[in-house]
Design a protein around this nucleic acid. Structure first.
Lengths: 119, 119
DNA sequence: TCGTTATATGAATGATTGTTCATATGTTCT
DNA sequence: AGAACATATGAACAATCATTCATATAACGA
């Protein structure tokens, strides 16, 4: 029932809860890491790329053909996905074959689908 | 080895793979739905809100106090989270107590954490 | 009813983002 | 070496977004 204006400009009503939440807060690195991963997943093109790669390994131009998008657009997105370690590339001559880097990604997509379907 | 310029402007090399990917593609609704959910999760403030609510039910001003943010900023984000059915509000007098709407959300956060920690 | 407080929301703004265009890099084939 | 092709990337631009400020709504107490 007490306010604690020393902490921030906002009145706080249930101090125990606030303290409890603060005690269990994630670290700054965890928060930005999580946000980056989800932000990366939060784009139709990248979802389609990941879903396509969950089907089979694909080179850039096949991805472009499958998604009906330019090579450049695909390549830019692949760079992002590579940086976030969501996909990995395997070079073979001129071609670069991309595949999912991690099982977590399929799990995340499945979990997301479960959420939107269940509602 | 064949190109199929009728499909799109991009050359496609492994036609069978492209066809296979197209056959298993998600629907437009599923893709935008997934992207919206992940986009919503892809923001530090919203992650912190959801993580706080995974601890206990909280009113808006307590959330503001716990996160050190203004009531307005929190409230705007809560509206988004409410729209996407990630949180729900329970009104009690002047106060509105928010909580997670769904178990999937905790699972998604946990799966995301597993991904960033494992690497 | 009036003052206070909790929450919601519209408008504005600076920041971030996705795609396109142009071009660079690197590999294969002749 | 030179042509053709697959991929990568920098710059630019429109679109989207997160926060702030101001204000509205609504509930409570005096």
């Amino acid at each position: 029932m007490s306010n604690d204006p020393s902490v921030c400009a906002v009145r706080c009503i249930h101090t125990e809860n606030v303290i409890r939440v603060k005690r269990h807060a994630l670290s700054a690195e965890e928060i930005t890491g999580l946000a980056e991963i989800f932000k990366t997943l939060g784009n139709p093109t990248r979802i389609r790329i990941l879903q396509a790669l969950s089907e089979c390994e694909l080179c850039v131009c096949d991805l472009g053909a499958a998604l009906g998008m330019t090579q450049s657009a695909i390549s830019h997105q692949l760079r992002l996905l590579r940086t976030l370690r969501l996909v990995k590339g395997r070079k073979e001559g001129k071609l670069v074959f991309y595949s999912l880097d991690d099982d977590h990604i399929t799990n995340l997509l499945a979990q997301g689908l479960a959420h939107i379907r269940h509602i």
